[in-house]
């Protein structure tokens, strides 16, 4: 009788342990969803190009959008924005250019990871076209100008006058490369 009770307790608790192992993995999508909802981690809004074009610009207000670029670790690239900052009216679709150059003697695949600060403004920042949507492959010595098309949602909180869009380029290891052949990057829109 007692042995049965012990076995039951043990099984129940082992079930709890197993469930918590699953919960550890469930934290990955939960974290992702949490970041999307709150704009934590510089997650941006997700308007399509058509939705962005339909927004009525607000000429009565300007916000400054600054650009910041970084290259991670050993990635042998030079990477910079062609303009340090732009002034935009919320609702106005704007095109800016970034340039990356592969300074090494080998072909390198890179992936840019974006982030927008301050976090409370990031859900109002929408990119309709970005080189960060796909991996970028640069041949040795190749230089590429890469566009970003964005629109700032007019709903953006009143006290935000400056936004910073930051990109960090990471080298993509062999096993994580997209199957798209090198040099055929079509920017999605």
């Amino acid at each position: 009788m007692n042995l049965d009770a012990n076995r039951k307790t043990a099984l129940k608790l082992a079930g709890c342990a197993l469930a918590m192992f699953g919960f550890g993995y469930a934290l990955v999508p939960i974290y992702d969803a949490f970041c999307d909802i709150t704009g934590l981690n510089g997650r941006t809004g997700e308007l399509s190009a058509a939705e962005a074009a339909a927004i009525k610009p607000d000429p009565g207000r300007t916000v400054t959008v600054e650009f910041d670029t970084n290259v991670n670790g050993q990635l042998p690239w030079a990477f910079r924005p062609l303009q340090r900052s732009v002034q935009v009216n919320p609702g106005e679709v704007t095109l800016v250019l970034f340039v990356a150059q592969n300074d090494s003697g080998r072909m390198v695949v890179g992936q840019a990871v974006p982030s927008v600060a301050p976090a409370k403004a990031s859900p109002y920042f929408n990119k309709t076209e970005c080189f960060c949507f796909t991996q970028q492959t640069l041949a040795p010595g190749e230089r590429r100008e890469m566009p970003v098309r964005f629109v700032v949602d007019p709903q953006i909180p009143r006290d935000v006058s400056t936004l910073t869009l930051s990109y960090t380029f990471f080298e993509v290891p062999e096993n994580l490369r997209d199957s798209v052949p090198a040099g055929n990057n079509k920017q999605s829109s």
Binding site: L13, A17, M20, F21, F23, G24, Y25, L27, V28
Partner: peptide, 14 residues
């Protein structure tokens, strides 16, 4: 322990 050790196990497995 039962609630948290499995989460550590998951993290190091990742």
């Amino acid at each position: 322990l039962i609630a948290t050790i499995p989460v550590l196990a998951g993290a190091v497995t990742m």
